[in-house]
Structure formats: C-alpha cells, structure tokens
Design a protein around this nucleic acid. Structure first.
Lengths: 240, 240
DNA sequence: CAGTGGTCTAGACCACTGA
DNA sequence: CAGTGGTCTAGACCACTGA
C-alpha cells in the first residue's frame, strides 16, 4: 500500500461511491474539509477530485461543491484489436491473402464517399484474413496515397495492410460503424459461407488531424467473431 | 482565447503531434525547458504533460524524458445510447411491449450463467422495442432482485426495463459483447423477420461494485440498426 | 550518479454562482 | 457576497533509471 496520497484519497472516495456509502446526487466534503481530514495541501485533494471528475464519478460545481454523479448512458471502451495479434493469441496461425490491389484515380465517387483526399490517388486493397487457413474476415480498403505515399511500395504478401498502417502511420482520430449484414455473393465466396449468412460488418475510417488516411470495410464470419466493450471505474492503481 | 495556461501548453503540443511537427518516438522538451519557454511554474507544465499522457498522446519515462507515443491499437469509445432516446431523436415514436415477466428461483443454471447473485430470485423480462410500431429490437433480461428489489413492483407497460434501471440503479461496471447472428425462430417471430435474417446481437452485463445487477440479450434488426464507436484526441476545450 | 519525472507544500488571486 | 472550485507559484524532497 505505497500509494501516492492523491491516489489514496481518490480510491477511498471511489470505494465509497461504488459501495453506496455515498449515493448519486449527494455532496462530497469540500476541498477544504478534505485537506483537514487527510492533513494535506489543497493541490493534493484537488488532484484526487479532478481524477474522479475526469472519470465521470463526480461532478464539480463552483460555489456549490462536488457531487456524486448520477449514472448516465455511459460510453464504453471498445477494444479494436489487431486481427493478427488476436488470432495468434487464440493459438492459431495468421495469414493475410491479398486478392486485389488497384490504384484509384482522384475524384471518383468512391473516394469522395470514403472521405479521403479528393486530390490524389488512392490505393485500393482487397484481401482475406485467415486463421489456420480458414477465412475469418475479408476486407476492402482504400488508402490515401497523398497521406501515405510509402504504401504504394508495400507487398502485403504476408503482413496485412492494417497492421502495416498501424505500425507506420500515426493516426489521431477514428470512427467505426458496426452492423450485422447478410453475406453478399462476393463476401460469401471470399469467406466460404453461404449467401445470406450473418456477418459482422465493421467500417472504419481514420484520420491524422483533418487528413483522411484510410477507410476499411470488413466482413467477419458471424459465427466466429465478436467484439467486446467494457466500462469500469477509473483504472485501479497496481496492487490496489 | 482565454484558456488556462496549462490548457494552452497542452493544446500547442497536441497540435504539434497531430500535424506531424513532432513525430512518434521523438522527445519532448523537459519540464524544466517548458517552464522557461512558457515562463510558468513546473506544476503548470506538469499538468499539461499529464493530460497528454492520460490521453495516450505522449509517454513519460523517468530519467529519460517525455516522448511522442507511437500509435497503438487504440480502444475506441462506443456510445451505448438509450434506445428510447435514440428512436425519439430519429423522429419516431417509441414503445416497449412487454411479452413475458417471470420470477426465476435462485440457483438455476440460467442465473449462474448470467453471473448474477446465486442466492436470490431473479426477475426475467422479455419484450420488444418498437419504433413507430415496427419492431427494432427484442430483449431478454434478467435482473437480480437481491440487488434491485424495487424492480419487482414496476409495470414496464410503457417504459423499458433498461431505461428504468438506468434511472434508478447506479451501476459502475459493464461489459458488452457484440456479434452478428441469424434470427432464430423465436427472434424472427418477435421482430417480424424471416428465420435466418441477420441480427446485431448485443449482450450486456452490469455490476455495482462486485454485485451483478442485470444481464440483457438484445437482437436488433440487422438492416435497421448499427453501432458507432469513435476515437479522437482528448476533448478540445470549448472554443479551441 | 545526475537528470528526469512524481509528488507534495503552503500559500495566492480569481471567476463563478447559488444561498 | 461569501463560499466554492480553478488555476497558479516557487519552492521541496524523492524514486527511478539510463547515460
């Protein structure tokens, strides 16, 4: 139990909230009260309360004080793991099979729809992710060559384009849409499913600043893949 | 531009990272350097750098300094909106139709699987969420009456159990699994789909502290519903 | 072993806002 | 208008760890 003091204060108040000792809407002691209670300076108390406020557990209002927050339609953390890493962790062998690779000229409706640079060529890549040589997902990806010129020279005979991008191109914003769709003829053929089989459809677009980097559409075999999202209180300090 | 100084420092460094002026792996000035550069105290610099580290944009290492982080398989924020709210925002009318409501005795395999209290009755609720009287999703929910005794007295003739729980029971942890499945006979009947039609399947369990509150399994009409997750840099200060 | 970040102090002035 | 949180200062001691 060698926690910093601000961490100790934070976790004690957190525990009070989680166990119901402090109920939603109730007022916390003021920073001044907590200073005296813990015999520390106001900065230390403030750091603890700011962390709780950042985690959504409390709300701070000037003149009024700090209050236990009422639970909301929380956002949850969705892990978007690297597919290769996930397959290897399952104890399976990963392979990416490239099936198509084309340069798309600038200004096509396709590029505009993807939200990528309108003034530059795009690289279009299609392929299948295999686990022990069984198709798990297929993807169709567009990459802005204006943003990532090095991409044009990559072979992708074994490494997936997604993994390469993750390693080499810093991105700062991303949006993912998740849906359930029936396998089209093309998807069914790639994934060796029957047409109409349920697939988890994931569409992701990433940006660096305001510049679009890539858009990818993935179809996962519905019976073999799921995503997990979690919400929990602020990370516990190690050993707590 | 009336930002606090620590916020100004943070956003300037953030901008340098996003625009590529500072590249992944490169070293930032030390806290001491930044103190002099901005003419402020170390606490102020530290606050800015801590915020960047919390957002995953930089990594701080003792003795070595602070470095621009290399992009990782970031987690994304998944909005789990209240279904009623979402339907109303689409301009449609929301209704929850209760189809079943049973008390499940303690100790059944069902309860154990749901991870709910083994020593207490569970309330089982089934129903359909309708948008303009068209089924959008069906759900099967188990609620621990040990954790939420008031639940037994609720009618749920109009309000959904999920919305009621959200309003009345603070929860602190949740886990959601998302998959794509084919509609079973029962699901197809409730959603007025053909058997085998793709459905977005969402299973969520919530806890208060270590006490299980509820488990819910929802099937969404695949063609009518999708989820969106986002990742972005730390929230911008208002007006920045 | 020296430089770096982690934490903390004991103050200060201020903006905001609800009693 | 007084109490609250937001911010900031100018120091301090310490733990860690890579040059």
């Amino acid at each position: 139990m060698n926690l910093p003091l601000h961490e100790k204060i934070r976790s004690e108040i957190e525990a009070d909230i989680l166990t119901g000792v402090r109920t939603p809407g109730s007022r916390l002691p003021t920073e001044h009260d907590l200073m005296q209670q813990y015999g520390c300076s106001r900065m230390t108390v403030s750091k603890a309360l700011s962390a709780l406020a950042g985690g959504g557990l409390i709300e701070r209002r000037k003149r009024a004080g700090s209050f236990v927050a009422r639970p909301k339609a929380h956002s949850m953390m969705l892990d978007i793991p690297d597919l290769e890493q996930e397959i290897v962790q399952r104890g399976q062998r990963y392979r990416f099979e490239l099936s198509e690779r084309t340069i798309v000229p600038p200004g096509t409706p396709q590029a505009r729809e993807a939200g990528l640079a309108e003034e530059g060529e795009l690289l279009m890549i299609a392929g299948v992710h295999l686990a022990d040589d069984v198709p798990l997902a297929c993807e169709l990806r567009l990459v802005s060559l204006a943003a990532v010129p090095e991409m044009a020279a990559q072979p992708f005979d074994d490494d997936s384009p997604g993994a390469w991008l993750l390693k080499h191109v810093p991105w700062t914003e991303a949006e993912t849409r998740i849906a359930s769709v029936a396998a089209s003829t093309g998807v069914a053929a790639q994934l060796k499913l029957s047409v109409g089989a349920p697939c988890l459809f994931v569409e992701r677009r990433t940006w660096r600043g305001s510049e679009g980097i890539t858009q990818v559409r993935q179809h996962f075999v519905g019976s073999a893949y799921s995503l997990v999202a979690r919400f929990g209180p602020a990370k516990r300090a190690p050993g707590s």
